[in-house]
Amino acid sequence: MSIRHGLLALLERGPMYGYQLRAAFEESTGATWPLNIGQVYTTLSRLERDGLVRPLPENDGGQRPYQLTDLGRAEITVWFVTPISRTDRPRDELAIKLALALTTPGVDVRAVVQTQRTSTIQTLQELTRLKNRSDKPSDLSWRLILDAMVFQAEAEVRWLDHCEASLLRHQPSALTPTPAPEGADTDDRTEANR
């Protein structure tokens, strides 16, 4: 998600100035995504350039509120109805790491998997604690964001379990630390990787 769309969505509620936008953003994302005020202003000026928002006259406190234009309103409507494509997200470093671990001689793949699993579950424990701290209805949106992080972490663990089980079935040798590749060992791996 972009900050751009976040700010547009907030302006749908009515005109706001920079500090208000920042506070509202943090409130609705439960501070899982802190913004600095500089980011807010840079984004606002780009939105203005693109005709998605327009500045209103400064208020008495010298703050300038921004208002959504019709174009901006259309943009945010499209954003809400369009699914987020997985392929737009950054490449999965973990998947790449495991793929490389598999084909790099001397790497204990099982240990790589377990180290990641322990770390991810530890993150899950922390998220669960955080989530259970509050059950006020007003915190619902914040808990749902935490839930999203929880389910993503869980998916990662399930994928790790799957990797380990597949390795066991198809390439048991990869699960024991292999000595440095000299001679026959290298052939073995090429064989198993086909």
Binding site: I121, Q122, Q125, F151, R158
Partner: peptide, 10 residues
């Protein structure tokens, strides 16, 4: 994992 996460230790 989501359920194990309720524990103090896994």
């Amino acid at each position: 994992a989501r359920h194990a996460a309720w524990a103090d230790r896994v």
